[in-house]
Nucleic acid binder design. Structure first.
Lengths: 324, 324
DNA sequence: TAGGTTTACTCAAACGTTTGAGCTAATTTC
DNA sequence: GAAATTAGCTCAAACGTTTGAGTAAACCTA
């Protein structure tokens, strides 16, 4: 393993000088500079980050905590985080905290603390009180995507408004019996907010609320199938289904397909997220697009700029494809 | 920032003892042990990994290099790598190397070398000669998933055999005019191998090869759409399409849907990978399942066990759903 | 009870880098 | 031409941990 000492010896200087050259710190003349750089290159010198981090007390590492990669929106976020980080010469430490697994989340935080990451980006991670306290105690800036974490900045769309606009979008297209599907009542964030927006839009249009048209679920494909089965088994069908995720919307499409229900002819389906599946499914999903790439990029930039004062609301957009 | 020195002072011992206790190294009595552990807990002590890594000369970090997360199989692999790593108290350093971007791949390797990762798992990454040489020079074990990297172990399915079996699977179901779609001729690995297997199966069944039935592409949804358009525009249709990826198969389904071609009635579609989209698409894809989770798990285990002698061929499986 | 062994520690060096302070010789300033 | 400044280096400490070698006391053993 080649160190700056080796380079120093060959160049006839001390390690200090080598360090200053390699870090472009100034205080050397051009001749020694080129000499040192040549030697370093020829020896395939690689800085030992551990040593460097030890004295710097930080790590140019950003921690990314996600629940798992199954949630279809993790990928685009990670992609943009990685790309942005790459451009800034920052590395990504990835950790999964599972779903509602406080012990594992705690492990993730420990890991981040141990590595002295300069910031944490959490994606759709719900913090329990214990971990929230612990997070304060380790004193690492955190920025949360998709959900709010108390006392920490977040980057999200306005879920209430988005659900409202999406519902209104359907109403404007003359759908009246609109179901909301695969939302999680127990989710204080996304779930409740989207239900609120949905109700608000109906009220504004003077459409009476039918509680049976709100079907619980967990954002998954299966939840979509189940909800569709429930809604489309009698003969009092809704004319539009607004799903809380694209996966769930795909589930609705799947059920409709197997039961020969024409989409969008007999039934309109509206998704949420604009994840990979939205374009792949047939008919392609009209959906509420979340700007995942933008969110990932912003998160990295904010951490690097130590700009963690306030929450950011990013714009959503209703993307028209073929399912409405 | 609390260090072992702080703990040592409070416990009335030296840092050495604290270190040994915290690492369960033996050589202390139970009383000091519990005392030290209590103090550590109450101070929220977090080991400084940088310092630890510096003396250990490694990092209990595993590097994962992927091209990007868009390729639908990256997610399940990363998931299982993360889970396995979590169980072994290992962390994941994630890096994207882009597609055929030697400079960025080089950056990734530098990064891994600098962090002194104990091993690299590369997912579907093709190494150019320069980077291959560089990899040798930094002397970090690498295990490659999905493609072979010269002089390094890989974990893959037998692509030739898989394509052969999949084609035979179609032949046995009385399909005769079978197209192979979205394969990359220029890809010396996956592309060529799958073409080889396909041809072999046709030859064995004494079906003459029609070169027009092999349609180039890049495994993407769009490639699938394009191929379908090309194949299904005249009137001499194939009766089955074997796509080189589930995304491409979804593209075929999409084209078929919009042009009212019944699948599997008029046309059978066979996918490859069994990625997330395979189950979500309608009709659900019959596909060649790659054991991604298993592959990720194996990769981590092999790196940890320093068992990098030979290539591993993992079993694939033809998963029957509704598209054939 | 003398000898040896074990237990429970301490000491100090080491890992590779960074960085403020110090030093010398060359250059500038008035 | 003496004094002040600057360029280009060196010195040595520091970061927090680990670990082999050393040591003193306690415990065996015959």
């Amino acid at each position: 393993m080649v160190t700056i000492k080796d380079i120093a010896k060959l160049a006839g200087v001390t390690p200090s000088t080598v360090s200053r050259v390699l870090n472009h710190a100034g205080g050397y003349n051009d001749k020694t500079k080129t000499k040192i750089e040549q030697i370093a290159a020829s020896l395939h010198y690689q800085k030992n980050e551990a040593a460097s981090n030890l004295v710097a007390k930080t790590s140019n590492l950003i921690g990314v905590i996600i629940t798992d990669s199954k949630s279809s929106f993790a990928s685009p976020i990670i992609d943009s985080v990685e790309d942005t980080a790459y451009a800034h010469d920052i590395r990504i430490l990835l950790a999964h905290c599972g779903l509602n697994d406080p012990k594992r989340l705690r492990f993730c935080l420990d890991l981040m603390a141990g590595q002295k990451v300069s910031g944490i980006i959490s994606v759709a991670v719900q913090f329990d009180d214990d971990n929230l306290n612990y997070l304060e105690s380790i004193n690492i800036p955190l920025i949360s995507l998709n959900v709010t974490v108390p006392h920490h900045p977040s980057i999200e769309i306005d879920d209430v408004q988005a659900a409202h606009d999406a519902t209104t979008f359907l109403i404007n297209r003359h759908y009246r019996k609109i179901a909301l599907v695969a939302v999680d009542h127990s989710d204080p964030q996304t779930g409740i907010k989207r239900i609120t927006g949905y109700k608000k839009a109906l009220a504004e249009a003077h459409i009476s609320l039918d509680p049976d048209l709100i079907v619980k679920g967990d954002f998954s494909f299966e939840a979509g199938v189940k909800a569709a089965k429930h809604l489309l088994s009698g003969d009092d069908w809704p004319d539009a289904i607004f799903a809380a995720s694209d996966d769930a919307a795909a589930g609705v499409l799947s059920y409709a397909y197997t039961h020969h229900i024409k989409v969008p002819g007999k039934l309109a389906v509206l998704g949420f997220d604009d994840s990979h599946v939205a374009q792949i499914v047939t008919p392609a999903l009209t959906t509420v697009k979340q700007p995942f790439s933008e969110m990932g990029r912003l998160a990295v930039q904010k951490i690097m700029a130590h700009d963690l004062a306030e929450n950011v609301t990013v714009p959503y957009e209703i993307l028209t494809r073929d399912s409405v």
